[in-house]
C-alpha cells in the first residue's frame, strides 16, 4: 500500500510544479505584453500601447463575406508640444492589386488594425517573422491587433482564420512592407 501512496504524492507534486510553471509563463506573457492576444488585441483595446507610438498607422478594416475591406487609414504624429495628430493617409497606404487589398507600410512601422465585421464572425490572421497575430472579430464588437511591421521588405499575407462561408479561403490581403 505504501508504494501507492508514494507515487501518488510524487505525481501530485510534479503536476503542481508543471501547472504552476505553465500558468506562471502564461501570466508573465500577459503582464509583460509579449502575449499578442492579451497585450495587443481583443476587446476594448486591452493592452494596446497608450499612447500609440509615433508613426503608428491605424487601419480601419472591415471583414465582409468574403474580403478584407480596409476602409480608412490614419497615421499618428506627435507635435513637439506633445499634441497628437491623426493624419489621413488612406490614399498612400491602401491599394488594390487584382482585387486584393494591400496595406503599404515601411519596415518596423507600428501598425494598429481596428477590425470589425458587418456580417459574420471572422478572424484576422497574419504570420510575421516575429510572431503571428490571430484575432477573432465578432459582429458588433471591435477587435484590435497591434504589431510592428517586419524589418524585411516584402508581402506578408493576412487571411481570415475563422470559417465564414464558402468563400472563406479567398478572404485575404497583403501587408506590403516597402
Amino acid at each position: 500500500m505504501s508504494e501507492h501512496r508514494d507515487w501518488e504524492k510524487i505525481w501530485f507534486v510534479v503536476m503542481l510544479v508543471i501547472v504552476a510553471a505553465f500558468v506562471g509563463y502564461s501570466f508573465l506573457g500577459v503582464v509583460s505584453g509579449s502575449t499578442a492576444t492579451y497585450r495587443f488585441g481583443l476587446p476594448l483595446q486591452s493592452g494596446v500601447p497608450k499612447p500609440l507610438p509615433n508613426g503608428t498607422v491605424i487601419i480601419y478594416m472591415e471583414g465582409v463575406q468574403w474580403a478584407w475591406v480596409p476602409q480608412n487609414a490614419t497615421q499618428i504624429i506627435y507635435l513637439p508640444n506633445g499634441t497628437e495628430l491623426q493624419i489621413p493617409v488612406s490614399s498612400n497606404v491602401i491599394t488594390y492589386i487584382n482585387g486584393f487589398p494591400y496595406i503599404k507600410v515601411y519596415p518596423n512601422q507600428p501598425v494598429e488594425m481596428v477590425l470589425y465585421s458587418n456580417n459574420v464572425v471572422h478572424a484576422f490572421y497574419i504570420r510575421l517573422p516575429h510572431g503571428p497575430q490571430n484575432v477573432n472579430i465578432v459582429p458588433g464588437i471591435n477587435s484590435y491587433s497591434f504589431f510592428f511591421a517586419p524589418s524585411a521588405p516584402g508581402n506578408y499575407t493576412f487571411h481570415c482564420a475563422e470559417y465564414c462561408g464558402i468563400g472563406h479561403s479567398y478572404m485575404y490581403g497583403y501587408l506590403w512592407v516597402m
Binding site: V19, F22, F27, T37, G41, S46, I141
Partner: peptide, 20 residues
C-alpha cells in the same frame, strides 16, 4: 475562445483549469 473578445480574466481562468 482565447482569441475572442472575451474578458481577460475569463481567458486567464481557463489556463489553470485546462492544465488541472
Amino acid at each position: 475562445l482565447q482569441t475572442w473578445p472575451l474578458p481577460t480574466v475569463l481567458r486567464a481562468f481557463i489556463t489553470p483549469t485546462t492544465l488541472i
